[in-house]
């Protein structure tokens, strides 16, 4: 076929049959590439399974003064705070609830300071100053005999 025999695109009349065929073809393309795109995106998103919780032997009950607190750490060096009130013990994460940095315990101020964006939390993990929206996260605690076990995400 020579170039002069090709019908210009704006002169092509589609007809009902042709229109249906075009729509079916377009739908097929959208569905097949769409499916591939969804699989591809899921592949890239990866496995978003939260880390396993592990129980860490944190301290003996007698090591945390009644009405006071003690900074403990797991084997990877990650710190967390134990606060005791009678027989009740709470454990706070030291991960800042603003953008995830590790807060530091300042003994003289009795407060946690986040070095990233100047946040301050009191000894009970409540935000006192700066941008954090919520208190420090609490970890589940179990007191077995005279020992304190804290469940926290595996490092």
């Amino acid at each position: 076929m020579s170039a002069s025999e090709i019908t210009p695109i704006d002169k092509v009349t589609l007809g009902r049959r042709g229109a249906m065929a075009t729509i079916a073809m377009a739908a097929g393309i959208v569905v097949s590439y769409g499916t591939a795109a969804i699989y591809g995106l899921r592949f890239l998103f990866g496995r978003q399974k939260p880390p396993r919780m592990v129980q860490v032997l944190s301290a003996a009950l007698t090591e945390v003064p009644d009405g006071g607190s003690r900074l403990a750490q797991d084997l990877s060096g990650r710190k967390f705070l134990l606060v005791r009130s009678g027989g009740n013990v709470s454990a706070f994460s030291t991960t800042c609830t603003h953008l995830g940095c590790q807060v530091h315990w300042k003994t003289e101020d009795k407060a946690f300071i986040c070095p990233c964006h100047d946040a301050v939390f009191d000894a009970n993990g409540n935000p006192v100053e700066g941008p954090p929206p919520i208190p420090l996260a609490r970890y589940p605690v179990e007191v077995r005999g005279s020992n304190i076990f804290v469940s926290m995400p595996e490092a």
């Binding site: 990877s76 990650r78 940095c101 530091h104 986040c114 070095p115 964006h117």
Partner: peptide, 21 residues
């Protein structure tokens, strides 16, 4: 396990860094 006590990003992120504070 430890965020250093003094931490800052590159200078061109300073405006956002300070803004967030």
């Amino acid at each position: 396990a430890v965020t250093p006590e003094h931490i800052k990003p590159e200078w061109y992120f300073y405006p956002v860094f300070r803004w967030l504070k």
